[in-house]
């Protein structure tokens, strides 16, 4: 008798969990609507006394946010492109074989990622300066950030390649395909979903790239939105509701894209290539 109710009970539990989890996000939006002093009110108000939406257009124009967001998009796209180009092949090889050398390879991919960006930025700055790359600051940031994003991508995509049966590739080789041919016509299409999803995840996380951008990109017109956000944190004043409004403008588009794509993201990763 209780059987049909179980799924609905699960739905309720799931929604409750989601509500708890999403609370910080809700708090960001609510805080952005509050006035400067209501933010400090004790006890805090769960719903703003009066909703002041004017902060949004204010912040948008005062901070030239369309420029910042465009730069964030460019940088994230560049990082994703480089990561996919270098990372996919690397992951494929690391999934295909099993020997000491590739163990070392996989090991170094992880090891090379260990230093926090904050301590890597000084040597990179020095090197970029030597090679004149500081004159192309966004490119420089893309290169540096791609190296940070790569290990994660390689590990995930390697798992995707593991789900492609080797027999299929071997059959293609028997049929007279070259390795290159088999890779492009058999293996890649089968792993396409996984790669695509990992690329989207890479894009989303590099959309928030901050530490490299703030040091390498000096001209405000070329900076991404994360650097623009840090401009609110002054020595003696912190404009909290503007920060929250800025954050909301910053994350809302990417959240929207994400919510639209999330079914594909999850199913792309969870279904594997052939299941």
């Amino acid at each position: 008798m209780t059987r049909p109710y179980v799924p609905w009970l699960l739905v309720v539990v799931a929604l409750a969990l989601a509500a708890v989890y999403l609370f910080p996000l809700y708090w960001m939006y609510v805080t952005s609507f509050k006035s400067g002093s209501e933010i400090f009110a004790n006890p805090p108000t769960f719903w703003p006394r009066e909703i002041d939406l004017s902060i949004y257009p204010n912040v948008w124009t005062r901070r030239t946010m369309h420029v910042f967001l465009w730069n964030s998009t460019l940088i994230a796209a560049g990082v994703t492109a480089i990561t996919v180009i270098f990372g996919t092949g690397c992951a494929y090889v690391l999934a295909r074989y099993r020997n000491v050398w590739l163990d070392i390879g996989l090991f170094s991919v992880l090891m090379l990622q260990v230093l926090p960006a904050s301590v890597m930025v000084t040597p990179l700055f020095v090197a970029f300066n030597q090679f004149g790359l500081l004159n192309y600051p966004r490119t420089a940031v893309v290169l540096a950030a791609a190296a940070k994003a790569m290990p994660f991508f390689v590990v995930l995509v390697r798992a995707t390649f593991m789900t492609v049966p080797r027999e299929l590739e071997e059959a293609a080789l028997v049929d007279g395909n070259s390795r290159v041919g088999a890779f492009f016509s058999i293996v890649l299409p089968l792993a396409r979903n996984g790669i695509l999803v990992c690329a989207i995840l890479t894009f989303m996380s590099s959309f928030g790239e901050y530490i490299y951008s703030k040091s390498i990109i000096q001209a405000p017109a070329l900076q991404p939105a994360s650097v623009g956000l840090s401009g609110f944190l002054g020595p003696n004043s912190t404009d909290w509701n503007a920060i929250m409004a800025y954050s909301a403008i910053y994350v809302t588009p990417i959240l929207a894209v994400f919510v639209l794509l999330q079914r594909r993201i999850v199913s792309g990763l969870t279904s594997g290539a052939l299941k």
Partner: peptide, 12 residues
Amino acid sequence: QWDSTGTFNSGN
């Protein structure tokens, strides 16, 4: 200091 004085401004 800015946030601390914020609590003063809100009467807390």
